[in-house]
């Protein structure tokens, strides 16, 4: 019983730390790329690629929030 508790503890520790770091990375990267994309390059056009990268990061964040809602609300599963 104690062994299974220890295994659950380490599973929770690793997954929680991993998920929190991924959310932090995605949101911070989304912000950084968004503001980088606001500047214009030498030809006068905005950095489309950085903007796209930013939108992808924020989209991933939205999916994580939706997954969290799915986990929270029993009617969905």
């Amino acid at each position: 019983m104690i062994t299974s508790e220890v295994i659950s503890f380490f599973t929770v520790l690793i997954v929680a730390v991993g998920v929190a770091s991924i959310i932090a990375f995605l949101y911070a990267m989304g912000l950084r790329l968004w503001y980088q994309g606001a500047t214009v390059d030498a030809s006068g056009s905005p950095h489309i690629l950085t903007r796209v990268g930013s939108v992808l990061c924020f989209t991933a964040c939205v999916f994580i929030v939706l997954f969290a809602l799915w986990l929270m609300i029993p009617i969905f599963h």
Binding site: T11, V12, A16, V19, I23, A68, M72
Partner: peptide, 11 residues
């Protein structure tokens, strides 16, 4: 993240 992970992984 910790609340959801812990409540769904049995700890």
């Amino acid at each position: 993240a910790t609340i959801l992970v812990s409540s769904h992984l049995g700890f």
